[in-house]
Design a protein around this nucleic acid. Structure first.
Length: 564
RNA sequence: UGGGGCGUCGCCAAGCGGCUAGGCACCGGGUUUUGAUCCCGGCAUACGCAGGUUCGAAUCCUGCCGCCCCAGCCA
């Protein structure tokens, strides 16, 4: 990363790592991994994990592997693999040559399963899924041993080999670890470690296997094989840690990584559940995984969030085991801060209102210079044409000021046109319905780059030259849900009831300054007084499309709200 | 009624026996050709509750209370 990192985040995981290094554990080595299952797109919650794992590797001069946890071919595909790789890269991280797949280890995993059987620690079970559930017991009652639990090693070896050879149907048999059916931790009640899956083509291994290892068996061994030192995962896996350790203690492995759990990110007014995000896409509530309203990295990228702002966000929210629900304002502050620093300023009128300067010569055209950034001269200037006919935003004009704090244009009043002259509104033209359709104004030729004499003009508004204006579509986004915690309330799927019907507002008659004519998709700007926007790749309507990433902080809106 | 976690300001979060960091939000004020940015100041009983140990506890002990996770041949 080229950015300077002034203060490294501190958290309990880094504290553990510091202690491990001090004590010489793992020979002082630090190796982490980011292990997504390729069954969906990465979201802001994954960003937390990516920043944690890759960030630690960077700061401790260690390594971080990208490993696809691809043990369930049913839900996975190569498209997700590619999308995930590109998202991690976009976020700013590099796994070098350490790209792995759990499926790379299928043969070794199979061998480990055989070792388990040989040690009398695994058996082939013929119980149906329903029976297995009955035998498992409940949270408060112990389970019962499977009638197949005491098969001989020879029989298990033979059966497992035949499972692999494809002699049995899906669900007919599974391989189970032999641990303790009375364990208070449900995960230890003889968990399944291999299941039979015919008829699916695995995106990496094709049809080479018809049995697939389960997560609990695969993950710890993959970590061990790769020499991972600290295996960081979310809290729901806390109960799995005894199992993680059991496999590594039972089998003959060289490394025993330490699993450490942290709490997942919850962000107000959105969801970070892959299942629910998939539902939003599948049911058409959004236009796709990269819909700018989605909390996916692809969506946020399209919305205009920068990688640096997301990394900053992850630093700020910290890493703990506490339940959390982070306010959207933290994320918004991060983008604003980054974009304020690097987004070139532009003038763009979202709700155009025609202004005619009656004392400006018809046909005359001036080229004015405007700074691309008010604080950063190095960003240079651009030229903007000034003519007799302009557009200003309808929200910047009111016939009479609602209060003395209002400093935009009013009838008979003056206002500064940003980077140009001071104008006065002389006449308001309305149509038959009383709708204001045009303003007749006059400009003060002696106010370019200097204040008028004898009076002060407080307001500054943005504008564009009508004959030069670029027509564009602008999409304004708001929160996807209207509830702070739409995902709460269990797995009922009722979260879609909380979708915000106004999460997208499309403006199709916007006018931009000419320099915005041919900018690349992804290019970002601050439209002065409006917010940060970026060019969308969509060209289907013929008009350029801009997405609003986030508004500017708006203290006027607060004053208005208070004033009534 | 089993097991595993969590509970410090509105939201995050430091702290690990000796004046409760910081960020976001919010509230004032200053600068300003973006009501932006930037700058200054404020947020004086916030350590879940109740006991206990101690000269001293958010930090240690005990007991409560609240919330989350676990009964996939998902990860």
């Amino acid at each position: 990363m080229s950015e300077e990192t002034p203060t490294k985040p501190n958290n309990f995981i880094r504290t553990i790592i510091d202690a491990d290094i001090a004590s010489g554990k793992h020979q002082g080595r630090v190796a982490t991994r980011f292990p997504p299952e390729p069954n969906g797109y990465l979201h802001i919650g994954h960003a937390k994990s990516i920043c944690l794992n890759f960030g630690i590797a960077l700061d401790y001069h260690g390594t971080c592997n990208l490993r696809f946890d691809d043990t369930n071919p049913h839900k996975e595909n190569a498209g997700f693999v590619e999308a995930i790789k590109s998202d991690v890269r976009w976020l700013g991280y590099d796994w070098g040559d350490r790209l792995f797949y759990a499926s790379d280890y299928f043969q070794r995993l199979y061998d480990y399963a055989v070792e388990l059987i040989n040690k009398g620690k695994a058996y082939v079970c013929d119980l149906t899924p329903e029976q297995t559930r009955e035998y498992r017991g409940t949270l408060t009652e112990p389970g019962r041993n499977s009638p197949f639990r005491d098969r001989s090693v020879e029989e298990n070896l033979d059966l497992f080999a035949r499972m692999r050879a494809g002699e049995f149907q899906d669900g007919e048999k599974i391989l189970r670890a032999k641990i303790d059916m009375a364990a208070s931790n449900m995960n230890l009640r003889d968990p399944a470690i291999y299941r039979i899956r015919h008829g699916v083509v695995h995106h990496q291994t094709g049809e080479a296997w018809c049995i697939y290892p389960m997560y609990d068996f695969t993950h710890c061994l993959s970590d061990a094989i790769e020499g991972i030192t600290h295996s960081l995962c979310t809290l729901e896996f806390e109960d799995h840690r005894p199992l993680y350790d059991w496999f590594l203690d039972t089998l003959d492995v060289e490394h025993h990584p330490q699993q450490i759990e942290f709490s997942r990110l919850e962000l107000e007014y959105t969801i970070t559940s892959k299942r629910k995000l998939t539902q939003l896409v599948d049911e058409g509530h959004v236009e796709g995984w990269d819909d700018p309203r989605m909390p996916t990295l692809a969506g946020m990228r399209r919305r205009g969030y920068t990688p640096a702002s997301i990394r900053d966000f992850c630093d700020r929210i910290g890493v703990t085991k506490s339940t959390n629900n982070v306010e959207m304002s933290v994320l918004e502050n991060c983008v604003r801060e980054d974009l304020n620093r690097c987004a070139p300023r532009r003038l763009a009128v979202l709700h155009p209102l025609k202004v005619v300067l009656e004392n400006y010569p018809d046909g005359q055209e001036e080229i004015l210079q405007a700074a691309n950034h008010p604080q950063d001269e190095a960003m240079g200037t651009r030229e903007i044409p000034f003519t007799r006919e302009l557009y200003i935003d309808r929200e910047d004009f009111l016939e009479v000021a609602p209060n003395k704090k209002f400093k935009r244009l009013v009838s008979g009043g003056e206002v500064r046109l940003r980077n140009a002259y001071v104008i006065r509104c002389d006449e308001v033209i309305k149509d038959g319905n009383g709708e204001i359709i045009e303003l007749r104004c006059s400009y003060d030729p002696d106010t370019l780059s200097k204040n008028p004499e004898g009076r002060k003009v407080k307001g500054v508004i943005h504008w564009v030259s009508a004959p030069h204006a670029v027509k564009a579509e602008v999409r304004l986004y708001d929160r996807l849900f209207n509830q702070p915690n739409p995902g709460a309330g269990g797995e009922g799927g009722a979260f879609t009831d909380h979708l915000n019907p106004d999460s997208l507002l499309t403006l199709t008659d916007c006018r931009l300054e000419p320099s915005l004519q041919d900018v690349e998709p992804g290019a970002f700007f601050q439209f002065e007084r409006e917010g940060y926007f970026c060019r969308d790749p969509d060209r289907s309507h013929g008009l350029p499309v801009f997405n609003r990433t986030v508004t500017l902080r708006d203290s006027w809106a607060k004053i208005e709200k208070k004033g009534g």
